[in-house]
């Protein structure tokens, strides 16, 4: 069987080329693949498009904003681009105002569903979300059952960076509490899915099949977070 286990975060992201689309999950600070993002930051790929709930937080933790600040991202597709407080200016906001980065703002539910569409090979979907707002401008509109909808397209990734709680050698994944958020969707929507794992990666069969959240078919690479890795 193909070995999915990589020894280091750096090895696991070494082949990510310039210009690809990176799916980066997390909700607020939970379920963020901080170790893989740090490795991709060290690796230095540029011209990347990022798909993420937010464009990076204001704190010192490594997140997609670290890559934004380093100039590695050419575009962010996300639901939140700015800090909740206007007094705090994120690197993304500063760079966007200077025309140094592009952005596409997507309602959070539409973002999740576009990823799910990509994962499932669905060509698009109609939703009433955003109808009548500036985010619906230029999109195909269609009335369904008396209600106006807009057409939304799938959002596939080249690479997904994922963080999970438990994994086995077959690539089956388990998440804790609200860690799941965009992780399963992004794991399923990318051509290559790379996972940082909190607990020791166990042999296939040691995780109860009834409790698996993401099946191994979607998972290509697994790396155990080292003791000196980023845990919070």
């Amino acid at each position: 069987m193909k070995n999915k286990i990589f020894q280091t975060m750096d090895d696991a992201v070494a082949d990510i080329p310039d210009g690809v689309t990176i799916l980066s999950p997390g909700f607020s600070g939970v379920g963020v693949p901080r170790n893989l993002l740090a490795a991709l930051n060290r690796q230095g790929a540029k011209g990347l498009t990022g798909v993420s709930n937010n464009a990076g937080t204001i704190d010192e933790n490594v997140d997609i904003g670290t890559l934004v600040e380093a100039g590695q991202m050419k575009k962010m597709i996300c639901a939140f681009t700015a800090s909740p407080h206007p007094s705090q200016v994120t690197p993304f906001t500063r760079m966007y105002n200077n025309d140094e980065i592009d952005a596409e703002l997507v309602p959070q539910g539409t973002l999740a569903e576009r990823l799910r569409c990509a994962a499932a090979g669905i060509g698009g979907f109609y939703t009433p979300t955003s109808v009548g707002t500036e985010l619906a401008e230029g999109k195909e509109h269609r009335e369904i059952n008396g209600r106006m909808h807009v057409l939304e397209h799938p959002l596939p990734g080249d690479y997904a960076l994922v963080r999970c709680w438990k994994a086995d050698t077959a690539g089956n994944l388990v998440f804790r509490l609200t860690q799941r958020n965009f992780n399963p969707l992004m794991a399923m929507a990318a051509k290559v899915t790379i996972v940082e794992v909190e607990e020791e990666i166990v042999e296939a069969g040691e995780i109860d099949p009834d409790l698996v959240h993401v099946a191994g078919i979607y998972v290509d690479r697994l790396v155990k977070i080292p003791s000196d890795g980023i845990w919070i």
Binding site: A79, T81, A82, P84, Y96
Partner: peptide
Amino acid sequence: RGVGNVGGAMD
């Protein structure tokens, strides 16, 4: 206010 934070508000 720039690009903004739509979050889940429209949903």
